Simulated scan of single mutants.
Amino acid sequence: MLRTTVMGAGAMALPFTTWSAAYGAPAQNAPGPYGALRAADANGIQLPAGFTSRVIARSGRAVPGTSYVWHQAPDGGAVFANGTGWTYVSNSEVPAASGGGASKIDFNADGTVRAAGRILGGTSTNCAGGRTPWNTWLSCEEIDLGRVWETYPLTGAAAQVRPAMGRFKHEAAAADDGRRVIYLTEDQPDGRFYRFLPYRWGDLSAGALQVLVAGSGTSGSFTWQAVPDPDGSPTPTRRQVAGAKVFNGGEGCHYANGTVWFTTKGDNRVWQLDVVNQRFELAYDDNLVNPGPAPLTGVDNITGGPGGELFVAEDGGTMEICVITPDDKVYAFLRVTGQSASELTGPAFTPAGDRLYFSSQRGTSGSSSGGITYCVTGPFRR
């Protein structure tokens, strides 16, 4: 039993009560504390009582209140406090020729839009990523020999490529401020799980890339071993270290208080790594839910909630964002209707923990040009 909570120093400092419960994986189906989902609202979203949704932006259209045209296929996202409100950043999971990269929307303290703009361009298939403690956004390319780009949504500085973090089919990143490392997932059926150790914390231009080494089971101990050639050519990084543990389609990644959670879409699992004691186990497996049916399938992007829970977005499934609680329960928090050809992406909370941003990557059209970005407001648990 790993005693921890989901929000921590490595994430935004949200006002919440620390839960003393433990994640005794894997989580099981149970009613949620927010109650049943209501009928779909005007935006086609089913929410618990007390919550409301609104559309923030649509692909191919100007963000309301600005002249900036929102990008296609919105994917991974994060929120940054900006001094007078907050900024939501979002990747674009399309090739460079179609406008891949990342954008941002700046909000005032009352939640109204102040500005929007591009923070990264000329890159390809930017899927997920992660925020750093120094307020940059790591935008990850999900292509063979893909790269990590460090962007600067608050300062407007030019984005910088970070090849030392490895060239592979990147998905998500999560910063561990205590150990001064960045954890990285790889979206391949035989993907691996990595960590990057910068030579100087706050500077990702140079450092050591390591891969997790462990047995083939679903729990046990692990170690880290250096990847000899982070450039990944001619031998892919995932095939350079004997004994590196295989993970089936690494997706979202989240760190807090000595624990890393990440999802693997190929087998619908959420993994939990105790990086203090170097132990791993399952936090969720849709094949181990009893009684069924499993409420969470197509696991993808993941973030920590203000009450210590994990919020996991579905790629497919029933188009839900589900919650895994510290006492090992899993339930649907919201469901998007009429968009079965899409996926939910980029969940992220505001600093106060009262707003959740996320996107439907292909919206009602089922096309990358039909993406919709939403905000849900309400009494989130703290």
Rank of each mutant, 00 (worst) to 15 (best):
F280D: 04
P198I: 01
L296H: 12
A352C: 07
Q46H: 02
M7D: 15
D110T: 10
C375I: 06
A158G: 07
T132P: 08
F247K: 00
G252Q: 15
P291S: 05
G100C: 00
N126G: 09
G316Y: 11
E171V: 01
D300H: 05
T373M: 12
D110K: 12
S67L: 04
G111A: 03
L145D: 09
I321S: 11
Q240F: 02
P163A: 03
D41E: 13
S139Y: 03
S233Y: 13
A9E: 11
R147D: 13
P295V: 13
G305P: 06
A13D: 14
D177E: 12
T112G: 08
H170R: 13
T5G: 06
T318N: 08
S233C: 04
I119N: 02
T151G: 05
G353S: 14
S342L: 00
I324R: 11
D187K: 09
S67Y: 12
S53E: 10
N108Y: 05
T218H: 06
T151S: 02
E93A: 06
F311W: 14
N248C: 02
A128I: 09
P31N: 13
T259Q: 13
D267P: 07
V330L: 04
S139P: 05
F349V: 03
Y284G: 10
P351T: 00
N290T: 14
A62D: 01
A332Y: 08
A40W: 15
A159H: 06
T264F: 11
R179F: 10
N287H: 03
S219G: 09
I105F: 02
T18W: 09
Q361I: 01
L14N: 14
Q72H: 15
W149G: 06
G258R: 06
R362I: 01
H71M: 15
P347Y: 05
N126P: 01
V246D: 05
K329V: 07
D267M: 02
V299P: 11
F196Q: 10
T17C: 07
N82K: 12
G130K: 07
G24P: 03
L296D: 13
L273Y: 06
E251P: 03
N82A: 15
E141A: 11
F107H: 02
A25G: 09
V227T: 10
R54K: 08
V181G: 10
P33V: 06
V289Q: 13
Y183E: 01
S216C: 00
N108F: 04
A172R: 09
D177Q: 09
I105M: 05
G121N: 14
P230D: 07
N91L: 01
W271H: 01
A214K: 00
N91I: 00
D106R: 08
E171Q: 03
P33R: 02
Y194H: 00
L296A: 09
T364I: 15
